[in-house]
Design a protein around this nucleic acid. Sequence first.
DNA 1: GAGGCATGTCAATGACACTTTACATTATGT
DNA 2: ACATAATGTAAAGTGTCATTGACATGCCTC
Lengths: 69, 69
Amino acid sequence: MKNRLKLLRAERDWSQGELATRLGISRQSVNAIETGKYDPSLPLAFRIADLFALRIEDIFLRDEEGAGE
Amino acid sequence: MKNRLKLLRAERDWSQGELATRLGISRQSVNAIETGKYDPSLPLAFRIADLFALRIEDIFLRDEEGAGE
DNA sequence: GAGGCATGTCAATGACACTTTACATTATGT
DNA sequence: ACATAATGTAAAGTGTCATTGACATGCCTC
């Protein structure tokens, strides 16, 4: 399960801490998700999608998706 | 976090056990998700969406969504 | 009424999501 | 050189996801 979180965050010039605050989670959780340590829970994935006004499928990708690029 | 799992399963005439097998999880897990005991992990949510050929947002709903119906 | 099937639920266990505290690194500014 | 901000990482703790095994119910059929 890959994700485009780091990219989306960079587009908005947000630090990990700032994104964490907006999501109501810890900075370390943001870091862990970005660096692929684990996947967020489904409710958190929805909050992330809402924050960026995107669909979950546009932020989180199956491991094959977009891999060959 | 609500979900339309029971409905989608009924449309296909699958038992909880049959759905569980197709998803590679236990029957009790299917039951627990359907009865709202907990939400699936994000990877499992993707597997469910793939199985029904739907988007996650079309199966799992924020608590407000479609509530007033 | 006995047998099978689908469902709901409970207890116990292991794995993972998320937390706090803490430390190291790198870059920037004074 | 010192301080600050951002990032990466680690350990320990809590709660939730998901597991198996078991038991009870209702339905359907024989």
